[in-house]
């Protein structure tokens, strides 16, 4: 589903070159739930933005759903983002001027979908996250957890091949975070491929697999003993 080989991302200024990712390799199979972890500044978010085609990379190869994306133009990248990827952002990123229904509709409109099909998909997605009754509400009228559920509904409505979640519970309290996490797990059980970036060992423990990044490279989790232990401890305490 997602395969990066010897991928690098370099930010250049006049005086300095900074490697955000260096010789980065990852392979996510269809139906997997992968947690990408690492300390602040390790390159997690850079990985996610490149994986989601929000940013280009400097070197290496990236195959998404069998397509090598480095030569795609801006329109083709937009189309792939729209059709194959569902984004869940830490800050929800709902459009404040639009109500819940219209927010979920945004990516479907860019796909050129007809109104009846859009409506059906939106209501199904809102039903799925338990917010069908809030379709006419504006984001400001919802709690953080509800807003993130709307964002998940927006990501699901387009039936993407890959869900990318960037610290999806980072802005939520424990109870809301648990609800959102359970929803993601449920979506995964139904067959979705999910790549979640997090620095939270408890969330990482709930994923099928952990990919740990330090200094822009994938490393064995054992190379970060504190995080390693935290993940193990979380797994041990998990009810599942």
């Amino acid at each position: 589903m997602l395969k990066m080989t010897h991928l690098s991302k370099v930010y250049r200024t006049e005086v300095v070159e900074t490697y955000a990712l260096r010789d980065f390799n990852i392979n996510v199979n269809e139906g997997e739930f992968v947690a990408v972890t690492g300390p602040s500044g390790s390159g997690k978010t850079t990985f996610l933005t490149i994986a989601g085609l929000l940013e280009t990379f400097t070197g290496g190869q990236y195959h998404l759903d069998g397509v090598e994306v480095s030569n795609l133009n801006d329109n083709e990248r937009s189309r792939i983002r729209n059709e194959k990827i569902g984004f869940i952002f830490q800050a929800f990123n709902l459009i404040p001027d639009l109500n819940v229904f219209d927010n979920v509709e945004v990516p479907l409109r860019y796909r050129g979908m007809k109104a009846p099909e859009r409506k059906q998909r939106i209501m199904d997605a809102l039903e799925r996250v338990g917010l069908a009754s809030r379709a006419k509400h504006y984001p400001a009228e919802l709690s953080g957890g509800q807003q993130q559920r709307v964002a998940i509904a927006r990501a699901l409505a387009g039936s993407p091949r890959l869900l990318l979640a960037d610290e999806p519970t980072g802005n939520l309290d424990t109870q809301m975070a648990r609800g959102v996490m359970e929803l993601l797990e449920e979506i995964h059980r139904e067959g979705a491929t999910i790549v979640m970036v997090t620095h939270d060992p408890e969330l990482a423990a709930r994923a099928q697999r952990n990919v740990h990044i330090i200094d822009g490279q994938v490393v064995d989790l054992a190379e970060d003993p504190r995080f390693h232990h935290a993940v193990h401890a979380a797994r041990a305490n998990s009810p599942a």
Binding site: D74, N82, N93, I95, P96, Y110, R111
Partner: peptide, 16 residues
């Protein structure tokens, strides 16, 4: 600006 970025992330082209 952020909203435009979100729209682009959700599939809007430059032309959109």
């Amino acid at each position: 600006r952020k909203q435009i970025g979100v729209r682009r992330a959700l599939g809007a082209t430059k032309r959109d």
